[in-house]
Design a protein around this nucleic acid. Sequence first.
DNA 1: CGGTCATTTGACGAGCATCAACCCCTGTGG
DNA 2: CCACAGGGGTTGATGCTCGTCAAATGACCG
Lengths: 231, 231
Amino acid sequence: MRPADKSAVRHLDLFAGMSEEAFEALFETAYLQRFPQGVQLIGEGDPADFLHVVLDGQVELFATWNGRDTAITVLRPVSTFILAAVLRDAVYLMSARTLEASRILMIPAEKIRSVMLEDAALAQAMIRELATCYRQTVMNLKNQKLRTSTERLANYLLRLHQQQQQESVTLPFDKRTLASLLGMTPENLSRAFGTLKPYGVEVNGRDIHLTRLDELEGFAKADPLIDVPTN
Amino acid sequence: MRPADKSAVRHLDLFAGMSEEAFEALFETAYLQRFPQGVQLIGEGDPADFLHVVLDGQVELFATWNGRDTAITVLRPVSTFILAAVLRDAVYLMSARTLEASRILMIPAEKIRSVMLEDAALAQAMIRELATCYRQTVMNLKNQKLRTSTERLANYLLRLHQQQQQESVTLPFDKRTLASLLGMTPENLSRAFGTLKPYGVEVNGRDIHLTRLDELEGFAKADPLIDVPTN
DNA sequence: CGGTCATTTGACGAGCATCAACCCCTGTGG
DNA sequence: CCACAGGGGTTGATGCTCGTCAAATGACCG
């Protein structure tokens, strides 16, 4: 690992509070690796050998059952993934693949668990991270159970708009992935965009113009207890 | 709090490893309270003032949006609820109500946060608890996104059977609540039971006979990465 | 016996998936 | 330079899944 990378990692929320010794112990066995687009990093059911941290790029977490699959979330820098499996020394509940070329930091699971017992600051950071992931998943579940697919799309677009702070928002990945994330088929996503046209949603490939924001907001009924602030 | 109760609480996974002083500090301000059936304990959006622990009875966590509501999970003794909100000093994402008369232990959130900083064993127990809740919610989400309602019902019945270890299983709450938990309407639940009749599911009020277990299993396609072991 | 409530049943329509065809853009190879 | 193949996206036709509304049934309780 290059010094610049190491310094960046050192200042991540998750590791910033650690003692120097604990940090060194954790990182003498860590890998920093580049992956091209479309690589599967981990698979559902595999034992959790490494804690992964996305430093650059985009990673999709997805799950499979009976031939179907669905995206659970998409991670952007800087986020860890599947901390819970690492901490519980269990198997992964989700698979991960890169959506674009990415740099991933990999820390041996065993090392995480042992250092966490020694370093209280790391333990506290883990608690914060876990609690955040947990809450986001609850919001995700509420989104799925309480809203129709078109309502989910409308709220997704509004969140995107809030982050990007422009009149024209750009989808961060292809519509296929977006459909899966929102829990619908690509065909249905197309039609949902059509349904939102009267609310000022104009689609141009990945660029979406939101004229008439207020009307869209009226339709979407955004709720801070469902719509995740991050991502 | 009576001595017997205090001893029971002392031996919960969450508190068993704590030092005597830390435990005392935590409990000098805790309440143990009885609630009748049908009482709303906390509401979505309220600030998290107390960590709640179900010692007896049954508590439903549910969420609301735009006039609709849905059950997220049902807690049985002994479980905490909404630890994440307490730890993050945030608002609750879910509401809670008793499904039957219940005894609930309430610990001031501020106390939890401060003691957790001092007592490493408590911090570690929190990490385990949070990781478990997080993983259960991910499974819940996969269940919703990857399965039809009838598939969810079939798998639910098989899990009940596994826990109760009898030919005839008993639903732990009314069908209305079950329908909400499984993400469907009561009417639809009725029909789903009908659909499962050819697979040996015979309904008699809350008692369900599962003749032809193998056929039901063939339909359900249970998966340890979706079907939560507990509850 | 009458009332209330949970559950069931039927009829209907909305939401959504599936399959197939088509469009458009891009990259490839003759 | 053009023909062609491939992939992402859209559109249309069709039917299953599921929610909604209304009414009936049945069980329990006062």
